[in-house]
Nucleic acid binder design. Structure first.
Length: 262
DNA sequence: ATGGTAGATAGTCTA
């Protein structure tokens, strides 16, 4: 089965791009971030018509996450535990049943955290601590688990075209990278780095300053796998060409194939 | 160093 993540930067503006990409990449499960709409505004019929089930956790204006799945949902839960009073829609978790048992997928939109000297950076670090606690509990289930989404974390210098430009940014500060490593150290595998140590693999290019034509990108969209998922990892891809389409998102889809029959 | 672009929205805020 193929599991993908894509920060779509407004689902309503990019229905056509989504449909083209779904037909091309044929993912079984897709986690979407920055849908930028409320639940009732999500264009679910467009995807249901292609055979996808739709789960949405939206909000007005910003953020918002969703999951599309060819397999029916056994469970859908929204919101990251531990956020008393956190009203930002950034986390959705589903369980689907395959021919070979359940697969659990967490879709997340981790806070950006800039500016670093504002309340946004401590919010990011707190959110990462909450994520670590939640994932630790889920790993105890010993299931195939995929934790994927826009992490807003550049894990290593190789994950940026110009790492020196990011040294004071919330996406690359030592504390941010350390929190990401803590997550990995629970026992998760970065799917892309399990299959390639090549530099120049990016998932985001800013709309500004010609970042895309200059290939000034960063890798911040990740799929992290539990041991039971990692043992079945067959392939990983970044659909980079999508960035050159008309009206593109500033992110491109990243996917992983698991040797689990859907 | 600065400012550059895009999206939701109707002021600016977020990225």
């Amino acid at each position: 089965m193929r599991i993908a993540t894509w920060n779509i930067n407004s689902i309503r503006l990019r229905v056509d791009n989504m449909i083209t990409w779904l037909n091309e990449t044929r993912p079984d499960v897709v986690c979407l971030q920055e849908i930028k709409c409320q639940d009732e505004q999500f264009p679910r019929e467009a995807f249901e018509g292609l055979g996808y089930n739709v789960a949405v956790h939206g909000q007005k204006g910003f953020n918002g996450v969703a999951v599309l799945s060819r397999l029916p949902f056994d469970e859908v839960t929204t919101g990251l535990p531990g956020g008393d009073g956190d009203v930002q829609s950034r986390f959705i978790e589903v369980v689907v049943s395959t021919a070979e048992g359940v697969v659990r997928v967490c879709g997340l939109y981790l806070p950006n955290g800039n500016p670093v000297d504002s309340e946004k950076y401590p919010y990011k670090l707190d959110w990462m601590a909450r994520l670590k606690a939640h994932v630790a509990g889920r790993l105890a289930f010993e299931e195939p688990l995929v934790v994927c989404g826009d992490f807003n974390v550049i894990p290593e210098p190789e994950d940026a075209a110009h790492p020196e430009a990011w040294v004071n940014d919330a996406l690359f500060l030592p504390q941010t990278r350390a929190a990401f490593r803590e997550l990995l150290n629970l026992g998760l595998t970065d799917a892309l780095r399990a299959t390639s140590d090549a530099p120049g693999l990016y998932s985001f290019w800013d709309y500004q300053a010609g970042a895309w034509p200059k290939n000034n990108g960063i890798r911040i969209d990740h799929l992290l796998l539990s041991p039971q998922a990692s043992d079945r990892l067959a392939a990983v891809g970044i659909d980079k060409h999508v960035r050159s389409w008309e009206k593109p998102s500033d992110h491109v889809p990243v996917w992983a194939d698991l040797a689990i029959r859907a």
